[in-house]
Computed example of a mutant assay.
Amino acid sequence: MPASLRTVRHLLDSGTPRVLVSDLDGVLRVFDQGLWAELDAELGVDHGSSFRAMLGHPYLEEVTRGRGTHARWRELAVEHLVAAGAEPAGAGRAVDRWADTPATVDEGVLGLLDEVRAGGVPVFVFTNGTDRVPAELAQLGLDAVVGAHGEHLINSADLGHAKPDREAFERAHRRIEHQLSQERGGDVRADRGRGEPVHLRPGEVLFLDDSSRHVDGARAFGWQAVLHPSGAA
């Protein structure tokens, strides 16, 4: 088990955190990082071109803030690859292959989240995501984690702000309080009164993410935060 997950267990055992929030990409789901080199080789473009066209494209910032779509992002990625020297049809196939290659669920992280939920601590997933995230999570069978209707999914594309923006953490915190209030506080310690609003101090939220920038942003807001090694599975 990675040290990050042991740290999460230790902090939860201390009783201070009342909610656990996990990142998605690089933590709960991981991707084959070797795919980038394969795509570059197939397209005959410089090393790193595929990554820059997709995950490095500036339009992604708009998509994760709800001001753009996954579909348009893919179109722009194809244009970027063509500008880098790829043949148009090949560029389209490469983007489709990247977008449609399934992720792998990190069973260690999933097991921890399931254990925490079973112990009565609410679990949320907070991702800098696109409008396609709910469908992707359903495909991975993660409904038990985020809820059948995504009640415990916090997607930056819905918030209008993305990590590490302070506003993203503020809105995520309010979303968590609202959801737990909707659930009437029944599973949240110190809020036993049915129907009472749930109020959380920032320090009562524990956050796990593979980005040091996101961890720093969470800590600046006041959440407890643990850095997870990306793709630890």
Rank of each mutant, 00 (worst) to 15 (best):
L39V: 09
L28C: 04
D106F: 06
R93Q: 14
S22M: 00
E61V: 12
G66Q: 05
E61C: 07
G111C: 08
G44P: 01
R29A: 04
H57N: 15
W98L: 08
R72S: 07
L24Y: 05
R97Y: 05
L39H: 03
R74W: 05
D100H: 14
E42S: 13
V45R: 02
G85M: 01
R65N: 06
R29C: 03
A91N: 09
L35E: 04
G85A: 00
G34H: 11
L112I: 14
D40M: 11
R29V: 15
L28K: 00
E62D: 12
A99N: 11
D46Q: 11
V21P: 01
V109N: 00
A91H: 09
D106P: 05
V78I: 15
D23L: 06
A103G: 10
T101N: 09
E75S: 13
G56W: 13
V21C: 03
G34A: 15
A86H: 10
A41T: 13
V105C: 09
V63T: 09
T104C: 11
A71W: 01
V78M: 08
R97L: 13
H47S: 12
L39C: 04
D25S: 06
V45K: 01
E62F: 01
A71V: 13
V30P: 01
W36Q: 14
G44W: 02
A83W: 01
R29N: 04
A53L: 03
G90W: 14
A99H: 08
W36P: 13
S49W: 00
D25C: 00
P88N: 02
R93S: 11
A83Y: 01
M54V: 12
D96N: 06
V82T: 08
H80R: 15
L81M: 10
R65T: 13
E87K: 05
T69P: 03
P58F: 04
E75F: 02
W73K: 05
W73Q: 09
E62T: 10
A94I: 08
A94M: 09
S50Y: 08
W98F: 15
V45A: 02
F31H: 12
G48F: 11
T101R: 14
V109K: 00
W98P: 00
L55T: 06
G90Q: 14
A103S: 15
A94G: 10
V21G: 02
L24E: 02
H70C: 03
G34I: 05
A83S: 14
V82Y: 01
V30G: 07
L43H: 03
G111S: 12
L35T: 03
E87A: 14
W73E: 05
T101F: 12
G48N: 08
R72P: 00
L39M: 06
